[in-house]
């Protein structure tokens, strides 16, 4: 049972619950950032191998036996990019919320329904 991944999925579910039920726009974006953190946890947990160290070849990890000493480096590489993208998206969503608030002074998602059917 991969503990961290369970934690990650739980966070995703909580984040999703927040996005679906909270009426406040900021709360929705917070929900999104929780999902984001959860997903990053899952990604890193995939690369983890029990009892191994970080993928840096220095004194303690010689080049020769690196293959069975280090953790899988690829998920960490992916997460680096994913975190930054998460930040970019959150920042953009917040800007949208600011402009929406400027326009009709309300933070509740139910007040932006003029485009329908």
């Amino acid at each position: 049972m991969n503990l961290v991944m369970t934690l990650g999925f739980l966070l995703v579910i909580i984040g999703l619950w927040a996005m679906l039920t909270q009426k406040n726009l900021i709360k929705i974006i917070i929900g999104f950032s929780i999902i984001d953190t959860g997903v990053h946890l899952i990604i890193v947990s995939i690369g983890y191998i029990k009892g191994r160290t970080a993928p840096i070849l220095d004194a303690s990890v010689s080049v020769a036996d690196a293959a069975n000493k280090i953790v899988d480096p690829i998920p960490s590489a992916l997460v680096l990019t994913a975190i930054v993208i998460g930040l970019a998206v959150t920042a953009l969503m917040l800007t949208f919320v600011i402009k929406l608030y400027q326009k009709n002074k309300s933070l509740s998602i139910d007040d932006y329904q003029e485009l329908k059917w």
Partner: peptide, 15 residues
């Protein structure tokens, strides 16, 4: 704890 220092630093700084 998951032996991913790079990610930890990024998450701390950005997250």
């Amino acid at each position: 704890l998951l032996a991913a220092p790079d990610v930890a630093m990024t998450e701390a700084a950005i997250g």
